[in-house]
Amino acid sequence: MSGGADIALVSLGTTPGLERSDEAFAALVRRAGASCQVVPVRIGWAGQLRRHLAVTDLVEALASRRSARAVDARAVVYSTITAALLQRPAVPYGIRFDAIAALNRPGTGGLWQRRRERAVLDRAAILMPVSHGAAVAVDGARPPVARVPIPVEQIDGASYRDVDAVAYAGYPRKRGLDVLCRAWTAAAPTGARLVVGGVDRVRAIAWLRRVGRAAPDDVEWAGALPRERWLDLVRRARLFLNASRWEDFGVAPMEALAAGTPVVTVPTPGSFEALPLARELAPDLVAEDGSAEALAAAIRAGFALEDQRRRDYRERALELLRPYREEAVGRVVAEQVLPALGIEAR
């Protein structure tokens, strides 16, 4: 129940990234002078059915509709396109998203979502892509489009860099953990250690065994860490490594850039926000392709960075991240999003 709020944010929140994105958006709305009630989606027992994309999206769309049924607000914002697919609210609505089904739901597994998506997008009062890639995907859409990224604040880099490299591997297959481990084994300097967050040792080793890979001895499996501890690792790291097979926005690499930590990455497909920034900052740290061999070459280049180039990297990264600061994103919400939804900031 939204309790008569200006905006009800229907929050699917199926990943830590989505939860953080929704919390940030709600804070931006409140900062602009409007009230916002986050409406969490309760999936319940049907979550056990999520084994295939078509079924997963249906379960989550039905749960979103059920959770939003009693909403009482002047406008509704859906945190993903999936959350909006089966909705027909009586008030203006907007959709905030990092990818559309036309891009990330190919084949028969995305057939019903793609068919439903266009009408849902067309009826919206405003579309709020999180990333540049998502914005390009809806270029020319009927509703107004305002890019509302996840705010990324500056993270003070440590005066000492005592962590050789960090990587995030929650959802190991998506994050290319097998490619990451092969590349690290091939390129790591003698005595260097890689700290991997988001997955614990037991789960990581079991997954690697299933795909026929051995876990390197010089990897520390940090598991799921509190945000403060994770950011402390990132700010102390010499490199941030990414081998993801697909990314939408990609919070962790953006946080690395905010800490001035050089990002070494494969050219991950999707609306990967950090990729064009990483290419501008240091093209030699972006692998030629998604192979372990190409990533290993980029890792070697990362460890070869001289001190002055590292300082230049940090200064330029902070400049490139200015549009992602809370103040800048907040202006977009106040000046474009709220008026489109018929909400006057107070």
Rank of each mutant, 00 (worst) to 15 (best):
E153R: 11
V234P: 01
A24H: 12
A75K: 02
D248P: 09
R325V: 06
L62K: 12
R51N: 02
G302E: 09
R31P: 00
L338A: 12
F249Y: 15
A304W: 02
A334K: 11
E315P: 04
D200F: 08
A188L: 04
H132L: 11
C36L: 05
V76H: 05
A124R: 03
L62R: 14
V263P: 05
V130Q: 09
L53K: 13
R105C: 07
A99N: 13
R203Q: 09
G4T: 04
H132E: 15
A101T: 01
V152Q: 02
A165H: 03
A345C: 06
R227L: 08
W246F: 12
E327Y: 03
A334R: 14
A187P: 00
D307S: 14
P149C: 08
P151T: 00
T14N: 09
V196I: 04
R175E: 08
D218C: 07
A243T: 09
N242D: 04
A137W: 09
I299V: 13
Y313N: 08
V55N: 09
R175K: 13
A259K: 12
S11L: 11
I7N: 06
L58H: 15
Q87W: 04
R325C: 02
P323W: 11
R123A: 12
Y324A: 10
A70Q: 15
S159T: 04
N104A: 05
D289Q: 15
G176M: 12
I205L: 04
V234R: 00
E280V: 10
P92G: 03
D307W: 14
P89K: 03
A146S: 11
I155E: 06
V332Y: 05
A256T: 06
T185K: 10
R51H: 10
E293K: 05
A298H: 13
R331E: 02
L275Q: 10
E255C: 05
